[in-house]
Design a protein around this nucleic acid. Structure first.
Lengths: 225, 225
DNA sequence: TTCTATTTGTTGTAAAACCAACAGTTTTCG
DNA sequence: CGAAAACTGTTGGTTTTACAACAAATAGAA
């Protein structure tokens, strides 16, 4: 535990816990530090999960294997991210496998202990609140992505994403955190087709763009005179 | 509150609360019963949310309006469902508007009070646990749907969905809870094209199906002799 | 600056999806 | 039972996307 104390205290989950409460808290949560070698399986899809983890060191990938043994990488985890939070909180089986990409260090936490924490201690409430917020924020992210992907065409996906970004940043001019390839992946479309679609949208007067900068153009009502 | 006491006690959130603790708990959560007329706006997209709600009576729809004022219905809520849980827990602005479809009754609850509940009372722990589970289960649903939708073709979407269903039900033969139109909506594809694709998959020997019943067929390795 | 690697836009072709229309099947209900 | 409604599969024409290959623009390093 020793070497990772600061890393732990910097994580979303423990950030707001007073320094002096940390050790007692980690103890109560049955926390356990574990090292993994490159390509080692951290969790197998289908196994029941009762602990959530914090990836203190390394990278890992989420992998799905289907009925016909075809594999697909779903996502990547990097340092500081929480893994299996919702699976552990729901007490259900992992939907995917997690595999170490290079050596990893993970701090495992017993989720049901979070609920039992003494609410009179400030550190306990902080962890509970953080954990809940983690779930809630993740929820919103996923929901947002679904509503961007749940469109029939690339054009509609782009407009949905860009529109929400404008509303979120409260301006019709904004930068996005993706390059073209990443945006295509996010919307689950092909990059070059998406680029072509963007050009078309520019021609149609919906927006202007340069690299990751965008400016949306309100459509004036077609005048009725 | 009177008329809805049993409905409240049947809801996911309060199901495990001892009968006698219910009133005190509702009091502590600043709960408030509100009636809405048909088509009334329950919450406007962009407004900051601090309360979650339980839809005790009626139906409501989630509606999104984009930068160019184009509307889209995202989802429907029905009796017993919880609304705005993640938005309230994250303390952020609502991503969509919720509009009553017919007269509605909603019980509003102050989410931050859930965290303050006295953990020595069994009812309090039950509510906290249920609320967290609600978030976690929702999370998994959303994640599952994303991983089904995040495919380039209808064929891949179908195989992803059916594969997960087989794994979940632990059998290569199973029923799904969707008819064709609902499955198409879930995967965000066109119904008739999906039907055609299903036929093709049958011809290719991936599966057999009749209505909502499916049987997946393991592909034998092409023999090397 | 120049060179190189990366990112982005463009284009043509083949494949896939949408869409509408319709026919066959199954379910519902009087 | 029989009629109506709902659900499902099929088909052909049209549009959109994927895919690959390449050119242009940009960023980063020497």
């Amino acid at each position: 535990m020793a070497g990772y104390r600061t890393a732990i205290h910097k994580s979303t989950l423990f950030r707001r816990v007073p320094e002096e409460d940390l050790d007692a808290l980690l103890e109560q949560l049955d926390s356990q530090l574990k090292h993994y070698a490159d390509r080692q399986i951290i969790i197998s899809a289908g196994r029941k999960v009762h602990r959530a983890g914090i990836l203190l060191e390394g990278k890992a990938s989420l992998v799905e294997t289907d009925f016909w043994d075809r594999r697909k990488q779903l996502d990547q985890l990097s340092r500081g991210q929480i893994l299996l939070a919702s699976d552990a909180a729901a007490g259900t089986a992992a939907m995917y496998s997690i595999i170490a990409q290079g050596p990893c260090v993970i701090l495992w936490l017993e989720v049901k202990e979070i609920l039992k924490l003494d609410s009179s201690r400030p550190g306990s409430t902080a962890v509970l609140r953080s954990f809940m917020k983690e779930l809630a924020v993740k929820n919103r992210e996923l929901y947002k992505r679904i509503s961007d992907m749940d469109r029939t065409s690339t054009k509609e996906k782009l407009l949905s994403y860009l529109s929400k970004e404008a509303i979120r940043q409260n301006s019709n001019e904004f930068d996005i955190p993706f390059d073209r390839q990443e945006l295509a992946d996010y919307l689950s479309v092909e990059r070059s087709a998406m680029s072509a679609e963007l050009s078309r949208l520019v021609k149609l007067g919906y927006l202007e763009t340069h690299r990751n900068h965008f400016r949306l153009i309100s459509r004036t009502q077609p005048s009725t005179d």
